[in-house]
Design a binder for these strands. Structure first.
Length: 424
RNA sequence: GGAGAGAUGACCGAGUGGCUUAAGGUGCUCGCCUGGAAAGCGGGUGUGCAGCGUGAAACUGUACCGAGGGUUCGAAUCCCUCUCUCUCCGCCA
């Protein structure tokens, strides 16, 4: 969420810049400003009342000790009114604060100045395209048919065990999954990322910290008996490692990577591009998460984009990089680059990575702060994350693009992980 | 799952209603001392919100001793609820 001080000092800027996200913030911002004034007035009264009460209590203590019981009882009588007053002020304070909070969390993050205007994915800006699209000829099969032909992914079996969107990887398919995970983790480590293996169930505080809760509650699987959520991405547990943490400026940049399965209910997206591996309820992903100094977070973002680009290049996949327009940008993001690879039999671009800078939006929820060298005051850090990479669509593109009469060729970089060069 | 014991600052640890402004120690840091260091001595050392200022700081008020309520003029301390940790038993990959 945006910090109240920033909204207070930059109300007009907040309103105008949120228009890029097609978000009309005027009413909310005005409500926030007036609630903020109300809150501060209320706090002043409350603090004064409590100060007076504290002073009296101390005096009463002294009077009792020196045996002046009558005077003490007299003073006690005076506190009654103050106590009632402070109770009321306390109540109104929490009420105002609650309202203020509920308004502030309604505001999305402010988009970066480079974010293009636009309403949908059609308005995203293509930053780079390396689309040497392979010629497959007429008899190219989509990946779900290849999966069946070589018996490497079993969608029906997943239906039996769980339901739609939970495929079973078999034989060389399972091994290829494992190879991709190891390849991605090894590459991340080479790029300076520290590997962590977090829990894949998280509590409500964690869900709030990265912004999944309260808005996107319906998108996560919820284990009601224990009040826990299955992670939709490793971003949630890995970023929340730093919840309520105060870093030193020289700790930056903090770079973590994690492999986790990811669980998404995908409510409301039934029937659209869900064939095969295109959209699943459970999938594997390696995520990279950075915590950065505010002055350097956009350099870090560029580094992350280059890093992800190196992965898709090494896998030999045709790709393009998009800068998301305001309308397509997520609620919490200030700037997002999407990576898409071309899946040649479906003749479709598939999103395989999303790399974002959240600036201090998540950090404010997380209370993730840092101190400059020698300074006492804390400041909010910047958080960033990116998929590096999400497996299913990578797999879909690899299968489709590398199919030959002899079988499916495995990219050279993966062969030392798979132990085979072809699926036949 | 059963029984018991706990949760105090960066860390250890005292504190059973007001001489607590959270003792004492460790760590860190600044100063003195020193050729330099160690030791020693002295000072400082949390977070949020608000006020005052606005370059920041300082200063003032307030809240925070696992979380949330309650009792009281006054709560780290008493009461209630919850969460978590440890020990033993049970179960178990």
């Amino acid at each position: 969420m945006l910090s109240i001080g920033f909204i207070r000092d930059n109300a007009n800027e907040v309103i105008s810049r949120l228009k890029v996200k097609n978000f009309d913030a005027e009413t909310i911002v005005n409500e926030i400003i007036s609630l903020d004034v109300e809150r501060r007035n209320n706090q002043q009264l409350l603090d004064d009342t409590l100060a007076e009460l504290n002073k009296l209590s101390k005096e009463i203590g002294g009077l009792f000790k020196s045996g002046k019981t009558d005077e003490a009882n007299e003073a006690k009588r005076k506190t009654t009114e103050l106590k009632e007053k402070s109770k009321e002020l306390n109540k109104s304070y929490s009420e105002i604060e609650k309202q203020l909070f509920s308004k502030i969390v309604e505001l999305p993050n402010i988009p970066h100045s480079s974010v293009p205007k636009g309403n949908s994915e059609d308005d995203n800006e293509i930053v780079k395209s390396n689309a040497e699209i392979p010629e497959l000829g007429g008899k190219a099969l989509p990946h779900w048919e290849l999966a069946k032909k070589y018996d490497i992914i079993d969608f029906e079996l997943g239906n039996k065990l769980t339901g739609a969107g939970f495929p079973v990887y078999k034989g060389k398919g399972a091994k290829l999954q494992r190879a991709l995970i190891n390849f991605f983790l090894d590459e991340a480590e080479k790029a300076g990322y520290n590997e962590v293996q977090p829990p894949i169930l998280v509590n409500e505080d964690s869900g709030f910290g990265t912004g999944q809760l309260p808005d996107k509650e319906g998108q996560m699987y919820f284990v009601g008996l224990d009040n826990l959520y299955l992670v939709p991405t490793a971003e949630v547990p890995v970023t929340n490692i730093y919840r309520d943490v105060i870093l030193n400026a020289n700790d930056f940049p903090v770079k973590n990577t994690a492999y986790t399965p990811c669980f998404r209910r995908e409510a409301g997206s039934y029937g659209k591009d869900v064939r095969g591996l295109n959209r699943l309820h459970q999938f594997d992903k390696v995520e990279i998460v950075n915590i950065a100094h505010p002055n350097h977070s956009y350099e870090i973002l560029d580094q992350m984009v280059s890093y992800v680009e190196s992965l898709v290049s090494k896998l030999g996949l045709p790709y393009r990089i998009l800068r998301l327009c305001g309308g397509d940008l997520s609620f919490t993001s200030a700037l997002t680059y999407d990576f898409e690879v071309f899946s040649a039999a479906q003749e479709k671009w598939l999103e395989v990575s999303s790399v974002s800078n959240f600036e201090s939006y998540q950090a404010n929820r997380l209370k993730l702060r840092f101190k400059e060298e020698g300074e006492k005051k804390t400041k909010l850090a910047h958080t960033l994350n990116g998929s590096a990479l999400a497996l299913p669509r990578i797999l879909a593109a690899l299968l489709e693009n590398n199919q030959t009469n002899e079988g499916i060729k495995i990219p050279e970089v993966l062969q030392k992980y798979t132990g085979f060069a072809i699926i036949d």
